[in-house]
């Protein structure tokens, strides 16, 4: 494990991605405590105050401190995106592994249906689900998890099939090992790596998707300092105060970049060709 971390930090993507993520993790844990001001405090005199000594990133249409809202908002975006991805990965991994393990007709039937569900664009599926589950952060999380499931099932299955074709799995089969041993000890440790890489990159998508749902008014609800929602609310005031919109937009971008970088770094670090 420490070995993997060392190899990860040796790749430039892994090092930058990890550094950014440590910062973001700190924001999620301590954001509200570190924020210079109360993110909800309304100050009509300070409306649209440009970035400066009083509000480092300026103030919004209600005079709220943009930096403080940004720092507090990390907590309402990143953990939920992570949760959505983990739920989607878990469900997808179970379906994908099951499909690869059952093989034959079952595999074909499951994968045909997974393909069919994937014909609905992820955002559309999430929109449909949120519209019937109702607006809100938790429902958006659930919708993203469901929207991710078929894709993760496909990835897990192809990795599992690849591993299943390896001679060490054949050797275990020929030895007469129990199915549980083959799946858990021979296959799983070799499936986890590529799936973790895919999952990490998908967190970036989840962050973007979650922000998009909030932007469209179906995720987090006002006055929550959620980044996508902040962009949506600030759109009307682009002329007066572009900083209200730029700050949360960049925060979303940086978070997505961090997870993308970490995913690429992990892929390199897990590559066995790199080992010697």
């Amino acid at each position: 494990m420490t070995d993997l971390l060392r190899r990860l930090l040796r790749t430039p993507q892994g090092a930058i991605g990890s550094a950014l993520l440590v910062l973001l993790a700190l924001l999620c844990l301590l954001g509200p405590e570190l924020a210079p001001r109360d993110p909800e405090a309304i100050d009509f005199l300070g409306r649209f105050r440009p970035p400066g000594a009083q509000n480092w990133l300026g103030a919004d249409q209600l005079g709220r401190d943009v930096l403080s809202r940004l720092m507090t908002g990390a907590r309402s975006t990143i953990p939920l995106a992570l949760l959505a991805t983990l739920l989607g990965t878990l469900a997808g991994a179970v379906i994908g592994t099951l499909s690869a393990y059952l093989g034959g007709r079952w595999d074909e039937a499951i994968m045909r249906n997974v393909d069919a569900v994937m014909a609905i664009p992820g955002l559309l599926l999430a929109l449909l689900l949120v519209s019937s589950l109702g607006k809100g952060s938790l429902n958006a999380t659930l919708a993203i998890a469901i929207a991710f499931t078929p894709g993760m099932a496909r990835v897990t299955r192809s990795v599992a099939l690849n591993v299943r074709a390896q001679d060490y799995v054949k050797a275990a089969l020929a030895r007469g090992e129990r199915a549980s041993f083959i799946v858990l000890r021979e296959m799983l440790p070799n499936v986890v790596g590529p799936v973790v890489v895919e999952t990490t990159i998908r967190v970036a998508f989840a962050v973007m998707l979650f922000a998009t749902l909030s932007f469209l008014g179906l995720g987090a609800q006002p006055p929550a300092p959620e980044w996508g929602l902040m962009v949506a609310e600030a759109r009307r005031f682009v002329h007066q105060a572009p900083w209200i919109i730029l700050a949360p937009a960049l925060a979303i971008g940086v978070t997505a970049i961090a997870f993308n970088l970490l995913g690429d770094g992990l892929r390199d670090a897990l590559n066995p060709r790199d080992e010697r």
């Binding site: 390896q166 001679d167 060490y168 054949k170 050797a171 020929a174 030895r175 007469g176 000890r185 021979e186 440790p189 070799n190 066995p272």
Partner: peptide
Amino acid sequence: QMDKAYRRAVQIVFQHPDSSLNPRM
């Protein structure tokens, strides 16, 4: 129908040394 006795008695070694050992064990 291959039971433990058969599997013990009949063993196999594969062609590719790189893929016949689990890299994580």
